[in-house]
Write a protein that binds this DNA or RNA. Sequence first.
RNA 1: UCCUCGGUAGCUCAGUCGGUAGAGCGAGUGGCUGUUAACCACCAGGUCGGGGGUUCGAGUCCCUCCCGGGGAGCCA
Length: 431
Amino acid sequence: MKYLLVDELKNHIGEEVELKGWVYNTRSSGKISFLLFRDGSGIVQAVLYHPNHNEEIIKRFDELTQETSLVVWGKVREDKRAPSGVELDIIDFKVISASVDYPISPKEHGVDFLQSNRHLWLRSKKQAAIMRVRSDVVFYAREFFNNRKFLCIDAPIFTPSACEGTTTLFEVNYFDEKKVYLSQSGQLYMEAAALAYGKVYCFGPAFRAEKSKTRRHLTEFWQIEPEVAFFNIDDDMELAEDLVIYLVEKILERRQEDLKTLERDIKPLENVKKPFYRITYEEAIKILNRKGIDIKFGEDFGAPDEAAISLEFDRPVFVHRYPAEIKAFYMKRDEKRQDLALGFDMLAGEGYGETIGGGQREDDYETLLKRIEEHKLPVDNFKWYLDLRKYGSVPHAGFGLGIERFVQWVTKTQHIREVIPFARTLDRTEP
RNA sequence: UCCUCGGUAGCUCAGUCGGUAGAGCGAGUGGCUGUUAACCACCAGGUCGGGGGUUCGAGUCCCUCCCGGGGAGCCA
């Protein structure tokens, strides 16, 4: 018999097939027994109608427990009663390894318990749906950049100092000789790469030692960071817009069933089309003031402010040209408004806040040196970075997209810890 | 770091005024010919987060420590 995956069964109606996987749940009603079978690609209901079988197999079936691994042989049958439209009539099955007292029941559990059992929680239906979406986001982000002739250039994880200077970094002993830090962004290295190869991106983990304790923060997360030579802020926002549209299209095309499992209303996603809204920081302040939120020019947006702004729009919105003082040292200033930085944030929508942050970089040697000194950063560490402005500097821009923030929005998941396989948060580093 | 809520059966929780421990689910046993978190009956299951204190008596009141949830700031 042909070995197939659950999600391939709909193309094999009437065939006798072999499946390998685990017991998701069992039910029985007198002369008929049901096995919810999962194999990682999906779940299918397998049926054992007692009059068609001998007592030996019925007895073996009764002994099946949640998450026992097994091989099942059966005949695929179309069935309108099944959620996926397909069922399997069991011919025979063989247990590979029994599962005793599986801790996660199909009933409700608390977050503490589920997080402690994350290694098992990943097996459940909603978590599997989220992981499939995440996997696609990563794959199609790479495809997007590949299609546009970007080079994938990996940035180092060990770095000599803070990229943006301000954030707290995780310190690592480097052979007891010196301290290095876990990277919080590959951006500076991408700037070097962009001046070498034009269009580049990196995809990797980032580490922040800030004691953030919210449903939007992880201490270890993943981001994709493109950087392009000869790009200005407008080119940059357009690239971000195209990427987001591409990813949302692919998820809608491939993951309808998973979004349904997650009870994600897809209407807002179907609305993710060109053009996204583009407003300035000052316009955003006005919107907030109009909504009765007390905020003045020069103050940065908090999470509730970002949510309030995003709820004003029916698709993602770019907020650009922030006050330079509240932005990073490397951001280029607006020629017409020296107090404004050519940076932007993309707020995803539906109350989800910053998902992308980026902008045009300072490309003038003297100006950048001045900024580094103003921010009291160790100039020695940035010598190589300044070199980029010394040898054929060009305007360039880039952005960072937080994979988890993005997946959290697309799947509309309450807490960010559910959209990464093994979350690292302030209070949890296990399992 | 600050604010706030919580820790009782494997899980989710209730436990009144301080009077000696409860439910649902899950596990187990039995029943049921189409179940979708199946259902029905029976049944086992407890160091009430740790330590200290008040009291004749503490799950309940007080002190302290530990662990976790939600939020703020910071950010993706």
